[in-house]
Design a protein around this nucleic acid. Structure first.
Lengths: 329, 329
DNA sequence: TGAAGATATGTAATCGATTACATTTTCATA
DNA sequence: TATGAAAATGTAATCGATTACATATCTTCA
């Protein structure tokens, strides 16, 4: 396959000139530019990014760290990232850690080895210490989930406030016994969402029942079903459930249906994320909408700016309660 | 940041020796190996893949072309690809074309420019001519969707047979008026699945009603709903629907529910792919299971073998009918 | 016409690894 | 101890681009 030397020879110019044409520099005369372009066409030449990248010490690849590709929440964010990336001539390497530190390390190595120019971390299970160390020498943005004191810029929503909003909605509807299906509280977002839940209860004079709080290992349909099973068995059964993920909420919904109970009359359900599925369930799911796509675009812009050496500030985006059948009948 | 020269100097050896240690060659004495390893540790050295890749004329990146990241079918396949890739020291670049030729071309360019070592194409809307031309100089595997006469190896299932199986199942249940929600027949899989549908009808002496065949632009919930709306309006309404994607089937399900009809008593539904969500709907969805994960692993192995210069043969995997509530009550 | 300045082009170093080939060191054996 | 083979290490070319700096060519105007 042809390289820049061949093109130079074919066009009767030096490689420098070819490179100038390639990069659209304006110091090339029209005549030589045409000669070079002809040679390029004739030889079917495509510049190698391997050479260019080495010379420029960049890979033009952005790494996206997610726990699981199966949660549609991430997909919408990724779409946002991707569109910005493409428009700026970057490409994205999607890295699914499965919350497995070994996997994570393989991907971190890509940055260390210059195979990627920066990281957007969306993995709540990420090793914060490693991330901090990496951030000393590399561009990193935290998206959605973040470590507060890490000094690494992040973009997210106000999880506590969103959760508060969801629970308040249920309280306003008259519910007094509200279950919380949360994920492991080792994750910041889980702690924040619990805080919102607690605050809403307190503010409306409702007492908190520890039995009403269920923790799940992962965010999935299965886990939602399991959690709901536990809730169903409670002596003093709640009349509403707030799940911190639509996936959990949909699993819960299925379990409630399986028990012959009616949603929302017997049990109201609120989810989180507003994934596409949440509007396909029967009944449709009340949920908290996050601006996922926007979050992705901004995260990408932040990262690219950071790669350029600019300073970037953390950002908190708005959320919204979307009321549908699972709380309104 | 340290490079191989620095390490060599620090260890008092040549770069060749450092490189040998790096690549685990056994011609290095234990003594020097330790010296070099110490130097590496001391300097916090990480070999740059940019240098290595240029020298080796490889990027160790595999490109995966999918139409939309939103269809969970692809996700499971991708998981399979990813696991094999990682185990063989490759990484995957996920490329969502949105069936947009411009996007597609951006991604093809990555291969032309040596930024990727090969392609797994899963996009039915791919430009076959371009793909064929690319295949002359680059490693390419077609996964799930393929062009028959392209000469490019593929891995897929027997779409016609799978479709036949689905429709036969409905016929056996006594249905005689069966609608087909298909995607655009410019795609091979759509034509194949229609063939299976037609064959099942014919074989059981049922006449084909063109009105019962609906085509959709894309595979999504929306399109499924729209298709079902049309079916609902038919004078002689079918009693069953076979949709060529779970997404379409789930959209249809929603529309049927919205019309106050009962599934499967008033209208039976069969989908295709067995995505996770198909078991969460109410009622759960009868569907054709494809071995998605396995398909991914094999596709990745095929591609890597092809990159190595080996000859690879096309493969057809088994499918399976999964009977659930949407046809059985 | 010729000198200064502007414009166009070329030369060669560079990015950071790998590796063919050359050279040195080690070691067993005569 | 000398010798030759085997083992260890080094030298320098190479992958394919970019770019600082040097040089050549072209304009312009006194």
């Amino acid at each position: 396959m042809a390289n820049i030397q061949h093109v130079a020879r074919q066009a009767g110019v030096s490689v420098a000139t070819v490179s100038r044409v390639l990069n659209g520099q304006d110091t090339v005369s029209a005549k030589t530019r045409i000669k070079v372009e002809d040679a390029i066409k004739k030889l079917n030449y495509e510049p190698s990014m391997l050479g260019r990248n080495l010379r420029n010490s960049e890979s033009r690849i952005l790494l996206i760290l997610i726990p699981s590709i199966k949660n549609p929440f991430y997909l919408e964010v990724i779409k946002g990232i991707e569109n910005i990336a493409i428009s700026q001539n970057y490409n994205i390497l999607l890295c699914e850690t499965d919350s497995n530190p070994e996997r994570e390390n393989i991907y971190f190595d890509l940055v260390r080895k210059k195979m990627a120019d920066g990281i957007i971390s969306m993995d709540p299970a990420v090793n914060v210490e490693t991330l901090k160390k990496l951030a000393e020498n590399h561009a990193i943005i935290q998206c959605s989930e973040y470590a507060e004191d890490s000094g690494i810029p992040y973009i997210t929503i106000d999880n506590e406030e969103a959760s508060y909003l969801a629970v308040k909605h249920l309280i306003k509807l008259g519910h007094e016994k509200i279950a919380l299906v949360n994920s492991d509280e080792k994750y910041l977002y889980a702690r924040q969402r619990k805080l919102g839940y607690v605050r809403a209860l307190k503010e409306h004079g409702l007492s908190m029942n520890e039995q009403y709080i269920i923790h799940t290992e992962e965010l999935g349909f299965e886990q939602g079903q399991q959690a709901m099973k536990k809730i169903m068995q409670l002596a003093d059964r709640p009349t509403a459930v707030f799940a911190v993920s639509d996936l959990l909420a949909i699993g819960a919904l299925k379990e409630i249906n399986a028990n012959g109970l009616h949603v929302p009359n017997d049990m109201a359900v609120v989810g989180f994320d507003k994934i596409d599925f949440s509007n396909m369930t029967n009944p449709t799911l009340t949920t908290i909408a996050q601006p996922m796509y926007k979050m992705g675009t901004i995260a990408a812009k932040m990262l690219i700016n950071q790669i350029k050496g600019e300073h970037v500030d953390s950002i908190i985006l708005d959320h919204e309660l979307v009321i549908r059948e699972s709380t309104l009948g």
